[in-house]
Design a binder for these strands. Structure first.
Lengths: 292, 292
DNA sequence: TCGACTGGTGAGATTAATTCATCAGTCTGA
DNA sequence: TCAGACTGATGAATTAATCTCACCAGTCGA
């Protein structure tokens, strides 16, 4: 047996709190500000505390109101998304995708034209984002994650492994300091990715270099930035060999030592569990898997 | 501007779906089954699909209804908890705590009597659980987590570092196979914790043992079980030195080599961000920190 | 200082929710 | 096997929740 507050009053509160105005909430809900006032009062009486400060001409949320708003918002987001999913057209041809930045710029973007040629009716709405996202409370249909593939409560499809090789600008390789064997890295700047500092350590270990005290180090927040920094000649970075193949072919980046580090990390296509796929989602999934 | 379904109808649906019966839902909501029927119908008309199968005498959820229920439930849980937090008595002296199993049995339990002597009015409701929990949708007040301290959106307080030492039963140490230097571990069974397999590797590396091919290995799902297995003489495990100090003092476990591995992992007291602490929570927090 | 805002309040009007009466089907047990 | 006790469905009537209206006070800017 549940103990829920009056839900209609809650809806009115959420709108009023979001707008920080009873009048604006009234407009959104197609009622008068008086109705909003009544409903907020009902909720406040139920809770036994005030959610708004009513001094001055404008209303402001109390600390309690602020707290409550964030929870109520979360909950309403979820209800809204669940309702949207349920009533969504299975024939929908718009797919909202969230993609790991490196994969987006270096893999997906260059191949977008091919997808559009194959599926001219499908419209992709792409968003770059790193971390995990909440499929319950966002309208994102699918995502490309980077990681070890161990995520709970979502449908996970393996795309491709990430194999790291050192990359740097050709100028650096032709420069004064030699870069002929892994030990020579000691004289160069190593470019790290903040949250994956162990990668250089592992690569050096695999390359038979026991310990190295590099000349300097540079820290970047993403693999994409690390690769860009290497391209600018700022040092040597570890980058995925296939994602940077274009830069390597065109000579913008060179691989001083072709020693690949198997990271146990990979790119994965993920989406909400048990979600019936729309034709747009099916098309994107099939194309993505077939391009691998 | 939001697009929410009729919320009162949603509440009725949730109850009916939970009970898998309109009559039972009516009883819970103090209305007739007729009212339930009307409301469910309203919701179904709004969504444009049926949520219940009405064949036979009983109703069953359709696939869509099942999907919808889980989301609606989640959302209502959150509203319920937010409301409960808001109306909760600040003077409450009941604290619901979720504790990492190893910490619970080896640290908290032995000291519980001391807490109760100091705060006879405070009532602890303890729950053992490993993973992370959702403070938004559960009624747990505080938790003791084991990990690296990097968790988002929660209040984190450091408790104590975990320093690992090898432990085994005294019988094993006095047995036929020597255990005098780290290299001797090669002749014994190493007990691993499933999700922290790297620990033995790190310890051996720190002890100056390059590579070791142990006689066998045993995998346990938690540190608690690994320590118990070591106590039974099944092999050598890595255990936290302070958590196992009682067993070590009493001679149930011995430390063959006093080489401690700093794991960068620790125990932390955590709770919901911005949550105003009840007097019970304050008492527990203060006591816990002072016992460290 | 006046108008144009803000939100608050109580009474009445409107709309939504519930009950009631009735119907049909299904399962149970005498 | 057939009455009786359940299940839920439905439309009209009733009740309860919600909203509007009219009026209030206060604040802000011209």
């Amino acid at each position: 047996m549940r103990h829920l507050p009056p839900l209609n009053a809650l809806r009115v509160f959420e709108s009023a709190a979001r707008h920080r105005s009873f009048a604006a909430a009234g407009k959104e809900l197609f009622v008068t500000s008086s109705a909003v006032s009544h409903q907020v009062k009902t909720l406040e009486e139920y809770l036994g505390l005030s959610l708004f400060d009513r001094s001055r001409r404008t209303v402001t949320l109390t600390a309690e109101g602020e707290q409550y708003l964030s929870s109520v918002r979360h909950a309403f987001d979820e209800i809204e998304m669940a309702t949207q999913r349920l009533t969504a057209n299975q024939e929908s041809n718009v797919v909202k995708i969230s993609v790991a930045p490196n994969f987006l710029t270096r893999w997906l973007m260059p191949r977008m034209a091919r997808f559009q040629a194959l599926y001219p009716d499908i419209e992709l709405e792409i968003n770059a984002s790193m971390g995990l996202l909440d499929f319950d409370r966002t309208s994102t249909d699918m995502a490309v994650y980077f990681g070890n593939g161990e995520w709970d409560d979502i449908e996970v499809h393996f795309l491709r492994k990430v194999m790291l090789v050192p990359v740097c600008s050709p100028q650096l390789l032709d420069g004064e300091l030699p870069l002929e064997k892994p030990e020579d890295l000691a004289k160069h700047t190593l470019i790290y990715v903040s949250k994956r500092k162990w990668e250089w350590e592992n690569w050096l270990q695999q390359s038979g270099v026991d310990f190295i005290s590099a000349r300097g180090s540079l820290q970047m927040s993403s693999g994409q930035l690390a690769t860009a920094a290497a391209q600018e000649g700022l040092g040597v970075a570890l980058a995925d060999s296939t994602l940077t193949s274009r830069e390597i072919k065109s000579g913008k980046l060179v691989v001083p030592f072709d020693i690949q580090l198997d990271t146990n990390r990979a790119f994965y296509l993920v989406y909400r569990k048990q979600r019936p796929l729309t034709i747009g989602m099916k098309a994107f999934k099939e194309w993505l898997m077939s391009e691998m």
